[in-house]
Design a protein around this nucleic acid. Sequence first.
DNA 1: CGACACTCCTGATGGC
DNA 2: TGCCATCAGGAGTGTC
Length: 272
Amino acid sequence: MPELPEVETIRRQLAPVVEGRTVERLEIIDPRLVTPEDPGEFARAVDGNTVEQLSRRGKYLVWELSGAGYLLVHLRMTGTLLYDIGDLSHTRAVIRLSDGGRITFVDPRRFGTAQLVTGAEERDRFFGDRLGIEPFSPEFTPELLRELLRSRRTPIKAALLDQQRIAGIGNIYADEALFRARMHPLHPAGTLRRPQIERLHRGILDSLTAGIEARGASIDDFRHVDGARGSFQNEFLVHRREGRPCSNCATPVKKIRAAGRGTYLCPECQSK
DNA sequence: CGACACTCCTGATGGC
DNA sequence: TGCCATCAGGAGTGTC
């Protein structure tokens, strides 16, 4: 499932082939992608615009368009963006670029979304309502993390998945960050002491960085823009490793449920 | 406000 | 081998 590192991987690969190009035509094959908007109107608003910049906010891919609008794409569970690869099943939309380039949005489970906002103010309001701090921004310090978790009784894993606190962490990186921090996923978020906060802060940044360096995790549908797989799934320390030995103490990795998600941990290393 | 259940969706998986 | 039920989950919405 595309989380921050996967979306960042897509952004880095796609930016050089879309920035400065004009969208000749956006073809929306599955109207669900843009609900509640009208697909025809949506496409007309995008067509003819030049892509000024491709950026990322949380798990959103942000297309800045020359007409002062922003196309906000979220891949959700199974969305992928492929460049110059043709005729795949589950194709929900196709972008044809002025230089002949072709971007295909493929999404088997149809959870992905595309939205348009008309300007920087509306964009900032959109993200302001939904997303918290960017983990790689200088403002994301252990002090801020402590502030974000203060007095919350919810399990720490649920807090990490809350996009309104920290943007971009999903199920994979929450598990990996908590293992690196030697912290139990069900530990109440607000009771962490200073050294634990520091470890968690480090664990978040290290796991996201490792994910980006490995160009994302291809555990099921995630692919690079050329269809290749990321390799971070080969470096998972606990995620999806039930029954396999902990890299630190060889205790079998355990699977539990936390925040309604399948959650993996080392019962020895991650104390509650 | 917080915590949780429910919803969307479809391919993969497991039981018999 | 075939069929059916169940599972997976990001984020929005509804409920208490």
